[in-house]
Nucleic acid binder design. Structure first.
Lengths: 150, 150
DNA sequence: GCAGGATATTTGCAAATGCAAATACCGCGT
DNA sequence: ACGCGGTATTTGCATTTGCAAATATCCTGC
């Protein structure tokens, strides 16, 4: 049973993610935003007015967790839930408030700094290659590939 | 405020980790083991009889969460807590039982299959390069680099 | 125009999580 | 031998999480 823990891809990804999340979380707490909240803000910065389910898809946060998280963010004045009566009445879209935009503006430089720390010593090409490979891995995992394997 | 969400490293790492974890968890549940439990088993497969704090370091699981997790694993007969009276009496080491070994044997092939799925389309060199880069990133994050940045 | 199945979100609930305080133990200095 | 700061683990507690069921709305066929 040969199994080398230390070069096992899911392990390497997990520990890197946890480490990244921990340090970053502590710092953005000063801006009154938790890490999951930042993820939502980042998704909405990419495109404002997304539906809850779209935010879930982008952030990999469970949709029920997200529903409650959006509630908290609403209470903190970061976002607003909006139901459009004209469109599909089941859909809730999430819109960033000015306060949410301010929080995003404050955190983006922190986020960029952390990425720079993570990629210290990487050439531009190396960093791009790493990202591209992670995108490929994600592509391999999403959707049907897994179902057929199970 | 330029910030491209879709090529932001922590984002790419997080979503890949979540996707990987979700599919894999569902499958190993059939073996009566949760994902955090598998992480512990994998760490102990690497080296049996580790201290709780060492397992925490290897698995990136919080030490208090781990204390309770080990308790559950003990109840399921996967591992045993051991306090050696001769050595430092504060230390608890964790030892795998035959049932734990059997579970590990059952899951290792599943784990390998998932890694293969994740790395589908990668050459051996590419896969090695990806892993090596993740190890470098982790190195950049652990320890002092972050303190000086905060 | 209405029943019935599909989709989007919310809510109930039990379990997992992480921080901080408590506990147990070590070893040094006196 | 004793107290004291330091380390390893556990426990208390409030929060977060995710699955499954409930709710609300939509849409198609009749």
């Amino acid at each position: 049973m040969s199994f080398d823990f230390t070069t096992y891809l899911p392990y390497l990804i997990n520990r890197t993610g946890v480490e990244l999340a921990g340090a970053f979380s502590r710092e953005i707490a000063q801006h009154g935003v938790t890490l999951p909240m930042w993820r939502v803000l980042a998704a909405l910065h990419y495109r404002d007015g997304l539906r809850i389910s779209d935010v879930a898809g982008l952030t990999s946060i469970d949709i029920s967790t997200l529903s409650r998280l959006i509630g908290k963010m609403e209470k903190r004045g970061l976002v607003i839930r909006r139901r459009s009566p004209e469109a599909d009445g089941r859909v809730v879209t999430v819109v960033v408030t000015p306060a949410g935009q301010a929080a995003t503006r404050a955190i983006v430089p922190v986020a960029q700094r952390y990425e720079a720390i993570a990629l210290a010593g990487f050439t531009t090409d190396e960093a791009a290659a790493l990202k591209q490979m992670l995108i490929r891995v994600y592509g391999n995992l999403s959707g049907d590939a897994l179902d057929s394997a199970a």
